[in-house]
Every structure is written in C-alpha cells, then in structure tokens.
Design a protein around this nucleic acid. Sequence first.
DNA 1: GCCATATTTCGGTATTTATCGAAATAGGGT
DNA 2: ACCCTATTTCGATAAATACCGAAATATGGC
Lengths: 105, 105
Amino acid sequence: MKLEQASRQLEALGNPTRLQIYRTLVRAGHSGLAVGGLQERIGIAASTLSHHLKRLVDTGLVTQERQATTLICRAHYPAMHALIGYLADECCADAEDVVAESTVG
Amino acid sequence: MKLEQASRQLEALGNPTRLQIYRTLVRAGHSGLAVGGLQERIGIAASTLSHHLKRLVDTGLVTQERQATTLICRAHYPAMHALIGYLADECCADAEDVVAESTVG
DNA sequence: GCCATATTTCGGTATTTATCGAAATAGGGT
DNA sequence: ACCCTATTTCGATAAATACCGAAATATGGC
C-alpha cells in the first residue's frame, strides 16, 4: 500500500463522526445498513452523512450496494486489514541495534 | 478505548507528513530517532516537524526522551496495537444474520 | 556564566473541512 | 406517466489545519 492511500484512509477514520459511522458498519457485519438506518442511529443531517459516506467509499473503506431505492453500506474488511497491515509492517526495518551482530560473527 | 481518543490518533496518522514521520519511527525501532535526524530524512521545516511531533506525542502514538540537548523520539507500540485492536474489535457485534439460530434450537 | 546547538513557539496565510437546510435527483411501485 | 421516498448536490459559514521563517527557549559543554 502507498503512503498516500493509507493516509487518506486514516484521515477518513480520523473524524469522530466518520469513525462512528464506520464502527457502526463494522458492528453491523455482513448484512450492512442502509444510509437511512445509519442516519437514525447516528442522528446527523442526511447531507452530512452523505458527505462522510462518500469519503469512506472513496477511500475504499466502505462499499455500497443498491437495493431498490435504498443504498446498503458495508464495511469493507479487506481494506481494513490492509491498512492495519500497513501500520504494523516494517517495524524496526531500519533499526541499527540489531540485537548484537557478535552472535553472527 | 474511547471513540474520541481513537479518532484523534487516526487523525494524527491521517496526515501524509505525520504518517511519514510515524512510519520512519516505526522503522527505526527501539533506538528511535532524534528530532534532527527525522528532519534530515523527511526534509521539512523544523517548526513544521515540531508541530507534527507534538501532535503524535499528545495522542500517545510517540514518546520522547531527552538525551542531553537532543530529543529521542520513538513509536509507542502499545498505543498502535490498542488502536488496531479498536478498529478490528466488535466486528459484527450487531449483526442480525447470526448464521442460523436453528443450529441452537 | 557564556556559547553552541537542538528544539519549540510565534505570527501569518492559504487551504481544507464539518456542518446544516433547501433544493435537486434517483429509482421503483402503482 | 406519476408519485413517494431515499439519497445526493448545492451554497454558505465557521472552524481547524499545514506550512514556513524568524525569534525565543532549553540544555549542556567549557
């Protein structure tokens, strides 16, 4: 993953309202939630919710699927795992204190 | 972890420059890096770096330790793991399609 | 105590963002 | 075709942020 994309995803999750939206979707699991359902639970203006959802969808963290007139939203788990991997990855790769090269010779 | 704190940490990592700083520290491992060392590698104004570092420290993602006149910065791994845990946690907790309660009776 | 160097604070500017209500659009059922 | 409801776009405003250079501060060596 590129730093640019990771930072956009992290920024998306870094707004309290969006994090709440995202967690609500994560908790909802496979069946997801309609935009309207999210609005009921979170209690913000529909336009604000739409704006935040767009951001989460654009960054790949959330997917949407039409069902008649309603839009079902779901957390996209592969994206979440990739992001988590990016954060934990390469830990200590540049470390200079490589424990003790004396053990190698 | 509270949503408020998690979102502040995510927001901190959501700026490309800060994510770069953070990753540089993660890669540096236990020995960490001085502020000046970070500045050399990243190439931004010292004041800007200081601003970003403060944010990372305030949110608990980075720790600092004085060594004479220089400040050593280190990624604080427990914070990172807690944050990752927060994201993955409670997945599907509210799911309605609980696979099939018929198996339970 | 004074100097050298590492880091932070200050001041300022340009950009981005969050939020809302109202109006527009989309998509389907009848 | 028409209407109903779900969702998005528009327009506007207030607040937050990123960034820099210059000046201030901190810490320790001598």
